[in-house]
Design a protein around this nucleic acid. Structure first.
Lengths: 304, 304
DNA sequence: GCAAAAGTGTTAATGTTACACCCATGC
DNA sequence: GCATGGGTGTAACATTAACACTTTTGC
């Protein structure tokens, strides 16, 4: 369907409408969705007794074309004219992982004019969370250019300068993405907060970056921040869990995302109302068997 | 600059790039920013003794053209090809209120394919908060088609149906916008949460709407929800306060946004660390003078 | 004096943090 | 027996919610 054949509900062709309303005529940005698909997997057991460590993983695609050829990028693609942003995100998710109906939320829309060297592209990022047991088959199916990278992001420098009317706070985060058989990807992201009188302004920038395409390092950092804060006050973490899980597994997922150690007794009290006990147990674990739980979808019936 | 003259950093014209990368050729959406500019103002005093009530206000523009002619819409406009989304938002803010450098944050990007009857338009919404003392002059300057509406949004119906594998929860919110000399604007927004097994899905829709253009009623409801939740754990409310304020005024702002009554003593303890006492007092108030405070920009020095 | 709001103190309930301890399993 | 994790109890402390009370002003 050519653009100038489209007649809208007011008897205008799209061309007529745009000529009247859009000062930029046919020069319009392209819109894409960028998908941040996270999961949590087990690292290798150190010996027969220990539990495996958990790793937070993110799906990346190796670019086969310029620009950033050979570098890794978030999966995603153009939004079609007849589908909503969310439909586009669901479609991309299905294409990449072959799963529909997993948790997904819109994160942020990235609109710097020069973020893509080819043309003006505005990208809305979506975060999806999946239970790794559902995914494993698919990951192998995929072409060799889609891989799960383990994700780590740490604050490694912080400094604060007083100015006449306030202060400027600068923080440097190091993002590390690793995948067996691939070079490690690294980026340094700077976040600056300027307080001058009553006005507070914040902005971020990518200071160093190796192997990560476009501004995707910044997008990944943003998603991790969101994930970290939302895990504290929502039930978002259960989207990363299998149907049945032990409380220690749940705690490990919290720990790998928050990057802290939590106290077992306190963690169990805090999450008690979000889980339902089953009468099943793990076995052959090299230590005492543990009870399996499932997510209690009704935990916040009253509040929200 | 015509679109096909633009040569990018890889020696392609934009036309060549899009032919290769974009399956939709030249058919691309338009992108706009929609601005939600909030402020809090005083209603009329009931008598010489009482304090004025606070009202949460939102700036709306009367549409002079089809579609939705005569109805009220959020201010906003097209994103130019050489400016970022945020620059576009700042520009629109300046055009509407003549203010730069007030608090602003990106809210959400609205991408339903049919949300504008004329053509495919994707809109990123930004919320801005302003202290009304800075604004009052400008509001009068503006053309008669821009007005501040008082905003109210209440949950008025809730119901829950059990399904085989979970439940469906439905909530109806009534949004009311009022402005002296204008008809009241009203909308009913439905939010549905479907829990089926472990998968939770949420979506919203506008059920009834009178006088509010496009899908803007839903955008306003979304912004109010964000404002309400952020006021609880950030210092966002101080963007609505003048330089100097009393603790009761601050409490009133919290109350009008949260739509509850708060206990004075407890409110003061909770906000104590975010304010700095001055040695100034209000006077001629018909009751005991009260101390004026200012925002303490350093309140979260350690934490965040 | 009195209405209205400013401002402070107290107590009970609740939630959080840190730590200590016992239990069950596989080798 | 012992390493490893499963699972529970408790005391100190911090936070919150509800209420009661005193102070200061303009008319």
């Amino acid at each position: 369907m050519a653009s100038n054949e489209k007649v809208n509900s007011h008897g205008q062709t799209e061309k007529e409408f745009l000529a009247a309303y859009n000062p930029y005529k046919y020069e319009r940005p392209s819109v894409t969705v960028d998908m941040l698909i996270f999961t949590v997997t087990d690292a290798k057991k150190r010996n027969y007794r220990t539990l495996p460590d958990k790793e937070l993983k993110l799906l990346l695609i190796k670019r086969g074309e310029h620009p950033f050829i050979g570098q890794w990028a978030l999966p995603g693609g153009f939004v079609k004219m007849d589908e909503s942003l969310e439909q586009a995100a669901v479609r991309e998710l299905k294409e990449e992982t072959n799963i529909d109906s997993i948790y997904m939320e819109q994160l942020y829309t990235w609109g710097e004019a020069d973020r893509d060297p080819r043309a003006r592209i505005i990208s809305t990022s979506y975060m999806a969370l999946a239970d790794s047991s559902t995914l494993e088959v698919v990951a192998n199916d995929d072409a060799a250019d889609a891989k799960w990278f383990s994700v780590q992001c740490k604050l490694f420098q912080e400094h604060r300068t007083l100015t006449g009317t306030g202060y400027e706070q600068q923080r440097l985060y190091k993002l590390k993405l690793a995948c067996e058989g691939e070079k490690d990807l690294e980026a340094v992201i700077k976040k600056v907060k300027t307080v001058s009188g009553r006005t507070v302004r914040t902005y971020g920038s990518i200071e160093e970056c190796s192997g990560i395409a476009f501004d995707h390092a910044g997008i990944i950092e943003y998603a991790l921040e969101r994930l970290r804060s939302k895990i504290e006050y929502t039930d978002i973490a259960f989207n990363l869990m299998p149907e049945l899980f032990t409380l220690t597994q749940l705690q490990q997922v919290y720990e790998v995302i928050l990057d802290t150690e939590l106290l077992k007794a306190n963690f169990r009290r805090k999450t008690a109302h979000m889980v339902i006990e089953t009468n099943q147990y793990t076995k052959d674990a090299g230590h005492r068997p543990s009870k399996l739980y499932r997510f209690n979808t009704d935990w916040n019936k009253e509040n929200e």
